[in-house]
Nucleic acid binder design. Structure first.
Lengths: 247, 247
DNA sequence: GCACGAGGTTGACGTTCATCAAGGCTGCGC
DNA sequence: GCGCAGCCTTGATGAACGTCAACCTCGTGC
């Protein structure tokens, strides 16, 4: 509970120039609208690897748009079990959990040095009232998060370890691609234990399944570095085409 | 994909008289605001047991506030696995998944004869722009759904069968109580298979665990009728105080 | 260079839950 | 009444994953 050492930069924020525009913003905003938005996003905040952006119990004041870096969100049960609820990368909005009770209900921690745009929520509410397109976009972002979580529930509730990991790798791949990175080769920013927590598996199982995928020529793994060799093979696993028992 | 036989009632809808006000609406709305709201909620819709309110792929047009009855939502993977993502009762809002892509991404089906208030989404957006309190309330409802799903992820990702079922029963209990029903005695509207799907378990496991709870004097079960005898015992199970291996 | 620690891999073994299978209960139509 | 279908229960067995433990790898600080 010690105060994390954020550096807050008061640099001029310019959404209009931001290379994440297509991810963050609705298309077709007028210049005037974008100006309103730039007033909204007053500051940026840096979060060093290992530090938290916010913690469960913190008063909710702002949403955060990830500019660069990588974060995880976790919830904790009363008896101390931890569950990773998501990983966040550039262009994604975090903090939505806090709106409901004006208090954050999860911890969000940087897995590498990260920079976010701070979006004071009260102001967002005002701007959203005035700019229909932005309001609509905001609602879509929240709804998309609900739909994403439905997908995670499907994964956790009805998939085997191999299917979960294949789905996880493909999801990462697709998100990296959408950000202009390679979809076949990337670095896992999280540990095996964190992947396991997210997927409802133990770290040993994650490690074993990754090794098996590598053995089967689906991927190459070297510690955190992953190369997807046979994406269709992974897709086949996700859709139950190739359950473990058939191989 | 045949058209379901809804009966749409054009009765005057009166939120101001609705006994679900405290669940549905923010406190402290002015009379003028409530009038705007009543224009918004134009119609009601009845859905018979077994029929669907909407299906994945349907164009999204409205949200629905449950007036009475009981529904489930399910998502389906490409290979046909089904996952129950939630059960809905009076006072809850369903259909939020559709906002993101203007298409519903889950099926929502009545588990008993059900009546909902239809809330055309376009109009909701307008009214929300004009009525700050309602806007804020709407955002909180969406956020609450996100937080709820975090809880389900925790359950699916890190709890044992007994813990899941204990948590499930307590959750139902608490929701019934909030609606003025008994918190100790209620009827499960869903089958064992549906409970299992929601909790990531098979129906046999659900049945076995319920029997074990009954044997241990925690509950009484008779088919769909459940009486919670020892809620603290259930709570102890949820918080890992009493794992199966200790008994 | 070396020691240390965090994170990762791999193997042996055990537990939990799924699977398969048989049978019971309840409500409904005839 | 009877038969049937849907749902539920219970038992026997096995697979998938967790647990425990040993060891390896890499990066860091001294």
């Amino acid at each position: 509970m010690n105060a994390p050492s954020f550096s807050i930069s008061h640099l001029k924020v310019a959404c209009s120039n931001c290379n994440l525009r297509e991810l963050c913003l609705p298309v077709g905003l007028s210049l005037a609208d974008i100006e309103k938005l730039e007033e909204l996003v007053a500051t940026r905040k840096r979060v060093k690897r290992g530090e938290s952006l916010f913690r469960a119990g913190d008063r909710f004041e702002s949403l955060y748009a990830v500019r660069l870096g990588f974060l995880k969100s976790t919830v904790m049960s009363s008896d101390g079990r931890e569950q990773v609820t998501g990983f966040h990368m550039a262009g994604e909005l975090v903090g939505l959990d806090g709106i409901s009770s004006e208090t954050h209900s999860c911890d969000t921690v940087a897995l590498e040095d990260t920079e976010v745009c701070v979006i004071p929520y009260e102001r967002l509410e005002e701007v959203a009232a005035a700019v229909p397109m932005l309001r609509n976009h905001f609602h879509k972002v929240m709804s998309r998060e609900i739909v994403r979580e439905h997908g995670v529930m499907l994964l956790l509730g009805s998939m085997h370890a191999e299917e979960r990991l294949a789905a996880f790798l493909l999801n990462l791949s697709q998100r990296f691609e959408a950000r202009g990175y390679s979809r076949t080769e990337f670095v896992l920013r999280m540990t095996r234990a964190e992947i396991g927590s997210f997927l409802g598996l133990k770290l040993e199982t994650v490690s074993r399944v990754l090794s098996r995928f590598a053995q089967d020529g689906l991927i190459e793994v070297n510690q955190k570095h992953v190369r997807i060799v046979n994406p269709d093979g992974l897709r086949a696993i996700v859709s139950g085409q190739a359950p473990a028992c058939e191989r």
